[in-house]
Each structure stands twice: as C-alpha cells, then as structure tokens.
Nucleic acid binder design. Structure first.
Length: 417
RNA sequence: GGAGGAGUGCCCGAGUGGUUAAAGGGGACGGGCUGUAAACCCGUUGGCUAUGCCUACGUUGGUUCAAAUCCAACCUCCUCCA
C-alpha cells in the first residue's frame, strides 16, 4: 500500500519506521479517525534505556504528534521474568529494589520525548507490575493459558533458537510471551489501547496479544513493527567502548551521546536522519546527497538534532561546540567529560596510570599501561610513552585542568579541586 | 529412574599431566590510511605495589614434584530409553 489516509502511517512510512504491520488498511482507517491508542513496552533491566530503545520511543512520539494517544508500558512485572528474545542465556534475575530503582530512572527519559497528562493525546505511563503481580496462578492458567498451545509457542523464533542451540530455556522465560500477550489485553481493557508497536523481534509476541484479545474480548487489535536497528555493516546498534549508548545523562554525557551520532557510518546517515531527527524530509534528502567529506556536515546535524531530543537544545549546542573546538581547532575545550581530582593528589606527582583509570579511560592499570605502550595516550595533547610518568602541578593549565586523551577521540578533563 | 555426551577467557571454540594466562576466530579497543566514516593493514585484549606474585578452564575435595587435563562427589545442560 503506497498511500495512507492517516497522518500517522504516512509519516511512519515516509520516515522508514515500518517493517511489518497487521491489517494495514483497517489500522490506517482507524488512525485517520483518531481511534488508535498504541503502546510500546520497555523492560527495566538497566538504569537507563539505550539507543536500541530509541526507535520505540520515537514511534510513540510520532504517534502523539499525529494526535493519537501513546502509552509507555514499563515492564516492572515482566522484567521479573526476562524476555528470552535475542538472548542465548537466561538473564540474571534482578531484585525488586533494583527493578524499582531502574524504573524510576527510566521514567525521566520519556518526559523529554512525550507530553504526559490527561488530555486525549497525552501520554500515559503504566507498569505491568500493577496487574501481573496480582494474578492468581490457577485462575490465570484457566482463563488465559488455554488460549496458548505449546505447538505454537514452540515455533517461535526466540524459543526455537534456544532449543536449536541447546541452550536452556526455563519455564519462567517461556511464560514471558504469555505475559506480554496479557499486557496487551489488559491495556485494551483499561484504556482501549488497540495497537502494539515494537522491534521486529517482537512480532510473534505482539501477534499473541492480538489473538488473545480477539478470543477473550472480541477486540480488533493491531501490530506494527520496525526493522531491528543495525548499522550498514551489520553491527548491532548502540554498543560502544563503554558498552551501551545510554539515554540518561548520568550514564552517558551529552557530549559522548553527540559523538555517538557524529560517528555514524556514511551509509546510515540518511536513514538515521529520518528515524532519529525531525528535520523535514526534503531537507534530509538534500543532506544525504552530500558526498565524501561533505557528508560530515550531515553527520553533525544528525548528532545535534538527536542530542537535542534526548538532552535538550542547550546541551546539544554545547556538545557540538565542544566537538568543534576539540576536533577542528585542536583546542582544549571545556565541555569535555570532566573528572574531579583533589589538589592534594598531585603534591607528590599522580601516576599517569592511576589518572587514566580515574578518568575512566582505562579499566585497570594494566590496560592503561598497554595503551601507553601502544602510543595512544596524550597529556595536554603531548604524547606520553613513559608508563611511569607522573602528573605534577605544572601540568595544570590556567583553567585548573589537565587534559587526558586516549586515541584521537576520547578525551577527559581532570579538574583540580 | 537408566544409558551416553557436555560445561574453557567478553562470545564462539581448540586443548586430555609439565614448554598453558591457555591455539584459532569473532567482537572490542589502540595505531596507520582517511573525512572524528567505511574498507583495508598492524598491534592489544586477567589483575597487581611487576624481571616476581596472585587469580582463572561448572562447584568442592583428592592423586601428583606438577592438573584445564587423572580420580571422587555434587550442580547444570543436551541426547536416547523408561
């Protein structure tokens, strides 16, 4: 189908979000009439969501912009079970306190992307712990368990994969899909939610929910999935030196977040601009046509726009400016990630190894040592090849700062306090 | 419950008494080339107060001058049988 009636599907399609969609025409018709409420589920396995979750968040944002109602479903309950999709091994179970802390921390992110409230298209945030934890095992099995056949569950990719690879799949995890299906049903009952969106790996789980909704409530529910996000070279998105690319500022600085987008591969620039910025499409078309080094301009715009959404306009501009000073002028820029060091520590000279570890540029003295041997370390832009080097008071700049660099890209300022 | 097989570093995977901090690959990181890209080439990839010491091959014990390697028990997974 090429021409959609609804704003929502038209944007989603034009920007390249859609991978699969159930009952497209009906969904489109309902969206056009404003009769769609959609949700995306997020598990709280970490203190912050990461770039991999960004597509889901963006979809909810687009939905809201089209005048429809988005629901953020926090998986307080399902996190206790653990989604087996895409994982080889059983996930470590988190304690209730951890889950609760993660939940609180994750909530903050959504406020940047969505408007919450009670209005017709204001976003809602719900937690499936509210209903999953109350379920009675036997009643649940009788009422809902009978709608699921093992024959079908066993054909699911997530299940098959584990079995094929001879990896254990616990009964606990096996139930995840049932809970997710039930979530959809519950949301339909509570809020009239009739669309679930997610990554393509969620397709099966979503369809389960649709089926359950139809059988139990005769509800007409829909699914919409996006392609799993990978870079053109096939790597999974969102992993960098330090691990995941977090959306929370206290987990990853806006500067590093900006850098992540700045380092996008050429081939991904257009696609990412469409998915992760809100620039007009004709502007994006112009940008992605840039060739060679000029494409870097497009990457900067991508970085700034993406950063703006996650961290706000001001932080994004700062990050862009810091990057410009650091890379284009080679100056000591103030906006780089900063680590504070007590003035006293320099009195007898602070070992460079220790300093690198404190700055988070190396995980251990040994790693720091290897980096120095490899010629990767600079202090105040001077290459250091002595592992035993000490930092002294006279390394401090006028601004009270020592700049440590690892490679060309990673810089940390030691601030003397 | 019975029989057989398996559990190795971030991941995959070789190794069946010493020369093993453990081949090879992937990933990641660093260097080179470049455009803060990709591809490619090179290097690094347990920790430490470091010519030595400690920790590590599912867990716990044992044999031995010496164990990832042999033995015992246990745990977990897989396959076949009941």
């Amino acid at each position: 189908m090429t021409s959609y009636k609804s704003d929502f599907l038209r944007t989603m399609s034009a920007r390249g979000y859609i991978h699969q969609c159930s009952n497209e025409e009906e969904l489109d018709a309902k969206a056009a009439k404003g009769e769609i409420t959609a949700y995306v589920g997020f598990d709280c396995t970490a203190k912050s969501l990461h770039v991999g979750n960004l597509l889901g968040i963006m979809m909810l944002r687009k939905l809201q912009q089209s005048g429809l109602k988005p629901i953020v479903l926090i998986g307080g309950g399902t996190t206790k079970v653990g989604d087996p999709s895409g994982k080889d091994e059983t996930r470590q179970l988190l304690s209730d306190e951890q889950i609760e802390a993660n939940k609180q921390s994750i909530r903050k992110v959504f406020e940047r992307f969505l408007t919450f409230g009670d209005g017709p298209s204001d976003a809602l945030m719900l937690d499936n712990a509210d209903w999953l934890l109350k379920l009675n095992y036997v009643d649940f099995l009788r009422d809902y368990g009978r709608h699921f056949t093992l024959n079908r569950m066993l054909t699911f990719e997530s299940v098959k994969q584990r079995l094929d690879r001879e990896q254990p799949l616990t009964f606990l995890e096996f139930n995840y899909m049932i809970f997710q299906a039930y979530d959809f049903l519950e949301l339909y009952r509570q809020t009239g939610c009739n669309l679930q969106m997610g990554g393509s790996d969620q397709w099966g789980n979503i369809i389960n929910g649709i089926e359950l909704g139809r059988r139990v409530e005769g509800a007409e529910l829909y699914a919409l999935t996006t392609a799993l996000l990978t870079t053109s070279s096939g790597a999974k998105m969102g992993k960098t030196a330090k691990g995941a690319v977090w959306l929370n500022e206290d987990m990853l600085s806006p500067y590093d977040y900006w850098q992540f987008w700045r380092n996008t591969e050429d081939a991904d620039v257009g696609r990412f601009l469409r998915l992760f910025t809100e620039l007009p499409l004709d502007e994006i078309e112009r940008l992605e046509k840039l060739e060679g080094a000029e494409l870097n301009e497009a990457k900067k715009i991508l970085a700034t726009e993406a950063c703006k959404m996650a961290h706000g306009e001001e932080k994004a501009a700062d990050a862009a400016e810091t990057a410009r000073k650091t890379f284009e002028q080679g100056h000591m820029a103030e906006g780089l990630p900063t680590v504070e060091i007590g003035a006293g520590e320099l009195d007898n000279g602070l070992g460079l190894l220790t300093a690198l570890v404190k700055a988070g540029l190396a995980g251990s003295n040994g790693e720091a040592r290897r980096h120095i041997r490899g010629g990767a370390v600079k202090v105040n832009d001077e290459k250091i090849d002595d592992e035993k080097a000490l930092l002294h008071g006279d390394d401090i700049s006028n601004e009270g700062i020592i700049k440590l660099s690892l490679g060309k890209k990673r810089h940390v300022l030691l601030k003397i306090v």
